[in-house]
């Protein structure tokens, strides 16, 4: 089960592939036999109602959970048994659903914790300031993170994820809990990052937000893949509309 994963990697352009990945908690089936492939440079969305298994998939990609079955490939290498920190060093980086920032430290210290593993001391400061500029939060750098707004913490965490030299970025609900203006800013930011060539996989359940930015999407429902395609295809798919209306 672990060795056979490399054989039929038909899609050479895929940066991340999930092959028959399933996850059971006790008897509870959280994710069931999912196949998913994300192309290099894509801006792909995992969409689905609560309990569809989206966050569980992210946690399996990052190595927090070990899949019960199946295998995960990153740049055609099996990473199913690699530990979290090794995956990060290969180029996977994540912004979590609940802001994973260090509340008692300053924004700069937060960035330093993320960046110091990937940059030499001399380049690090420049890189951090560059990221602050990119996110337009330079004025916050010496603030204690607990004192920042929810949106500012979200952006800081995206910055921290970028400081890990990612080849692919995972964003778990980047727009959750944000106001309309903040949401617009976040969509612009995500598009900007993708235009620079960064592959992004993100989770959301707000159809409008997804339509606005994603290039392609996969719909999950009760741990199964329900539909897949471009955003327009998904948005006009009657079955998808039904599960969103709760039928």
């Amino acid at each position: 089960m672990k060795k056979t994963s490399v054989e039929n990697s038909t899609n050479k352009k895929a940066i991340l592939e999930l092959k028959g990945v399933g996850k059971y908690f006790g008897g509870l089936r959280a994710v069931d036999n999912i196949n998913l492939s994300v192309k290099k440079g894509d801006l792909h969305c995992l969409i689905g109602p609560n309990g569809a298994g989206k966050s569980t998939i992210f946690k399996m990609i990052m190595g927090v959970y070990k899949p019960t079955s199946g295998s995960i490939l990153f740049e055609n290498n099996a990473i199913t048994n690699k530990r979290t920190w090794d995956r990060v060093k290969l180029g996977l980086s994540i912004k979590m659903q609940i802001p994973g920032v260090y509340g008692d430290l300053t924004a700069y210290e937060n960035m330093k914790i993320a960046a110091q593993n990937f940059y030499k001391r001399r380049e690090m400061n420049n890189k951090i300031m560059e990221l602050f500029d990119l996110l337009e939060i330079t004025n916050l750098k010496s603030k204690i993170v607990n004192n920042l707004s929810h949106g500012q913490q979200q952006w800081l965490e995206i910055g921290m994820a970028l400081a890990c030299k990612p080849k692919m970025l995972l964003l778990d609900e980047p727009a959750a809990g944000l106001g309309p203006e903040e949401t617009n800013y976040t969509s612009d930011l995500i598009r900007k990052l993708n235009d620079k060539g960064l592959t992004i996989l993100f989770i959301d359940h707000d159809m409008d937000f997804v339509k606005n930015i994603a290039k392609s999407a996969t719909v999950l429902h009760l741990g199964n893949k329900f539909a897949e395609g471009t955003v327009d295809e998904i948005a006009s798919n009657q079955k998808v509309i039904d599960i969103y209306l709760g039928k």
Partner: peptide, 21 residues
């Protein structure tokens, strides 16, 4: 030194910044 403070504050998150916790 910065890494151990990060581990104290949030162990699981720190793993995802590439630290062998």
């Amino acid at each position: 030194g910065a890494a151990i403070v990060a581990i104290r504050e949030n162990r699981e998150r720190t793993k995802m910044f590439g630290y062998n916790v």
